[in-house]
Structures are given as C-alpha cells and as structure tokens.
Design a protein around this nucleic acid. Structure first.
Length: 142
DNA sequence: GCCAACGTTGGC
DNA sequence: GCCAACGTTGGC
C-alpha cells in the first residue's frame, strides 16, 4: 500500500464535504497539473491518503482511501486530465499543522514543505506513521 | 495584501 | 529551444 496527500482549499472542497459523501466517495477532479496527475495514475484501490486543508487552516484533518483508480476527468473536455475517486475513512482527532510538520525532524522534508503548491503528493511510510502518532490516530478501522 | 514559487504560454 | 511575461497558488 502506498500513502498520499490530497490538498484542498476548505472553501472550495472541505473535509466536511468529503465526509458528507460517505461511502459513495467523490472524484478528485479538477487537477490540472501533470505531476499531480501522474501521482494519481500510480494509485491503487485501498491506498490511503491524508486530507490537507490549505490557506487559513494549514493542517491535516482527515484520512481518505482510494476507491477507484485513475480514469478520465469528466470535468474537463481535454483528454489529458485524469482523476481518482476517494472516500473519507476517519477524522484526525488532533489536526496536524504545517507548523508542526516544518518543525519535526522526520517531517520537515515532506513534499508539502518543499513544494506547497503541488495538490497531490506521495507520503513515505515513515511520514505516515509519524503524522498518525501526532494526530492521535490509534487505529484505522477497515 | 503581499510576495515567492511554480507552471504555462507564446514570441523569437 | 530559450526565455520573458503572465497567471495561479498558498504561506506569511
């Protein structure tokens, strides 16, 4: 299993919006960046990701699961763009802030720090574990 | 509100 | 193929 990070402006698409979709999930559409698209093409069903709120909040607030692999993004008439579908798995009881990430020796080299603008990014298993600990995520139910 | 970082576009 | 100009994003 691989780990990822999905970044969203909360006023455009928030964690609450994602949670409201429940098991139905939602297409992660609208990505118009080759690097982000290529990461989505690498995703498999069951991969997990952090849901990050940019702008004012700047924190990881949720865990999602990839429920459909990459397919054409119907929100674009340009065939270049693909997207995956994700569903909310659980909340992060104690949101992990960008400030903490930057200050943490295991996390301060994350893509989120190095390239804040990339909207879909890979996360290493070390980073995943560390953030789960910081966020008080004891166990993710299946 | 400002600006740095990054990506894209288009002229040459 | 280079690079200047421009638009967008997101942290501060």
């Amino acid at each position: 299993m691989q780990y990822w990070l999905f970044k969203s402006e909360p006023n455009t698409w928030s964690w609450a919006d994602q949670v409201a979709k429940g098991e139905a999930g939602e297409e992660w559409d609208g990505v118009r960046n080759y690097q982000a698209r290529n990461f989505m093409r690498q995703m498999n069903i069951g991969d997990r990701g952090f849901f990050y709120h940019s702008l004012k909040e700047k924190s990881i607030v949720g865990i999602v699961e990839v429920m459909a692999t990459s397919h054409p993004d119907i929100s674009s008439d340009d065939p270049r763009w693909d997207c995956v579908d994700i569903k909310a798995l659980c909340n992060v009881p104690r949101p992990v802030t960008l400030q903490e990430i930057k200050a943490h020796p295991t996390l301060n080299n994350m893509m989120l720090v190095r390239n804040a603008r990339l909207s879909v990014q890979p996360v290493t298993s070390d980073e995943w574990t560390t953030i789960c600990q910081l966020g008080n995520i004891s166990k993710i139910s299946d």
